[in-house]
Structure formats: structure tokens, C-alpha cells
């Protein structure tokens, strides 16, 4: 494997966004790119990352390899990279280590690190293709704000989407709260728009602790997409350039 990223910031942010949710992960490398799928310890949330080969330049992967990496270790090494450094990942066939180099674009500084790999026996879940009943695209900062504000009151949030809009509601010991958003097009800045596409109304309840955690990815993208259907996991997607993405799935809370 040899994969060169123009900006180390992208990998730094991705790892930062998922390291509190998942610890030891396989980075599955093949000629289409680098993928990661992992459940959190409690098996409530699932992280699915895809960094397409087009996000790297150049990208070469001659044989499929799984790089088992501890994200705490990776974080330590990535801290040594500046955001605008050029980052290159390298691994040999049947590797013991993954090699990372950080090149400063302005100086002749080159740093180089090896991280020991681990054998991770991870089961891959098959994620079905779902036609979601409701898809909401909103500013990622807005979603972060909603989850943060409501998590101060309650452990859970009910998300209801109807043709009127989307409503986030919580009930806690000190009282209750809600935030409603309507479809809204910001003509001056499309990144601030709220788009709602609905085929049937949905109402689901989720743990806010996980949603707050997902929002650590907000720095990766101005926009976040929430996909919901009744009684299935919520999909929270942060799109990256070149069709790469960071997706989080969260199992709902369901009544008896």
C-alpha cells in the first residue's frame, strides 16, 4: 500500500471523530480505497468510513490488506503531523507495521513513524441498502448544537419528521425541550439550508450520548445528512471530498 494525502488534516479529523467510539480497528485497504467498519463496545453504534482511492494522489494497493490499528496509538502519531502536511501511508505485504510520513509543504522537514499493527478479529456486518422514509440535510454545526443543548436535559431524544418539518424533543428531570426545523433554502449560503425529503412520517428515539459523540465529526463537513425510517438504525453521514464519507449508524430505542 502507498497512499498519499495532500492534507494530513483529513485523516487527523476522521480519527479524532471516531477514537472515542471505537478503539481497535481494521483499516481494510484495496484498490478502491481504505475502509473501516467497527461497532462501539456496547454494540449500539457502528462507524463506517470510506476513503476512496480518488481522495489520495497517488494511491496504490496491489493486494488487499487489513491494517489492524489501535486508534489511541494512531492519534499519538497523527498529533505529530501538521494539518497541511502531506501524509503518506505505506505498508508492505503481510505487514507488521504501517509507516506514516509527514512532509511539510514549505520546508524540507520530513518526519517518519511506524505503528505496530495488531491482529483484530472483527466481524463485518452487512448493512442493507435502505430507502429511508426521511432524509434531512442540515448544517453540521446546527446538528451539533441541537444534540449538545438537548443532552443537557435528557439521555434520549425523539426525532419526529413530518411534512411540517423535523422536531427534536427531549424530556428530563428538570423539564423538557424541543427544537423544530423547517425546510429552508438560504439563497446566500446554501450550506446553511435545511433540506427535508420525506416519503412517510417517522418518529424514533435515540440515545443522545452517541449523537453527541458523532458530532465530533462536524469539522469534516459543513453539512450532515440524517436518514431515518421507522424501527431501523439512524444513519448520520458526513460527506468528504471525492465521495469519501464518514457514516455513523445508531440503533433506536424501542418501546415494548
Amino acid at each position: 500500500l502507498e497512499a498519499r494525502l495532500e492534507q494530513a488534516a483529513m485523516l487527523k479529523r476522521v480519527v479524532d471523530a471516531i477514537k472515542d467510539l471505537v478503539q481497535d480497528c481494521n483499516f481494510d485497504c484495496n484498490d478502491s480505497g481504505i475502509a473501516l467498519q467497527a461497532m462501539d463496545n456496547s454494540h449500539v453504534a457502528l462507524v463506517s468510513m470510506m476513503l476512496k482511492s480518488e481522495s489520495f494522489s497517488p494511491f496504490r494497493c496491489d493486494r488487499n490488506i487489513a491494517l489492524g490499528i489501535n486508534l489511541t496509538s494512531l492519534t499519538k502519531v497523527l498529533r505529530a503531523a501538521q494539518g497541511d502536511d502531506i501524509l503518506t501511508l505505506k505498508a508492505e505485504d503481510a505487514p507488521d507495521v504501517v509507516n506514516l510520513t509527514f512532509e511539510s509543504p514549505e520546508s524540507d522537514r520530513l518526519s517518519e513513524y511506524d505503528i505496530k499493527l495488531m491482529d483484530i478479529d472483527q466481524e463485518h456486518l452487512g448493512i442493507p441498502d435502505t430507502e429511508y422514509a426521511a432524509t434531512i440535510t442540515l448544517p453540521s454545526s446546527e446538528f451539533s448544537r441541537i444534540t449538545r443543548d438537548l443532552s443537557a436535559l435528557s439521555e434520549s431524544v425523539a426525532i419526529e419528521c413530518t411534512k411540517e418539518g423535523v422536531k427534536f424533543t427531549c424530556t428530563g428531570d428538570i423539564g423538557n425541550g424541543s427544537v423544530s426545523l423547517r425546510q429552508h433554502t438560504n439563497v446566500e449560503n446554501d450550506a446553511k439550508s435545511v433540506d427535508i425529503s420525506l416519503t412517510e412520517p417517522v418518529a424514533l428515539t435515540f440515545s443522545l450520548k452517541y449523537l453527541v459523540n458523532f458530532c465530533k465529526a462536524a469539522g469534516l463537513s459543513d453539512r450532515v445528512r440524517l436518514c431515518l425510517s421507522n424501527e431501523v438504525p439512524l444513519l448520520v453521514e458526513y460527506g468528504l471530498s471525492n465521495n469519501s464519507y464518514l457514516r455513523f449508524y445508531l440503533a433506536p430505542k424501542i418501546g415494548d
Binding site: 452487512g126 431501523v232 438504525p233 440503533a251 430505542k253
Partner: peptide, 14 residues
């Protein structure tokens, strides 16, 4: 009361 579901109840195992 609502019960937290597990993600593996929804996604198929290999």
C-alpha cells in the same frame, strides 16, 4: 419504557 436496541439486531452477520 423504551429499550436500547443493539445494532447487530438490524444488520446481518457474515
Amino acid at each position: 419504557a423504551k429499550k436500547q436496541q443493539s445494532i447487530s439486531n438490524f444488520f446481518s452477520k457474515p
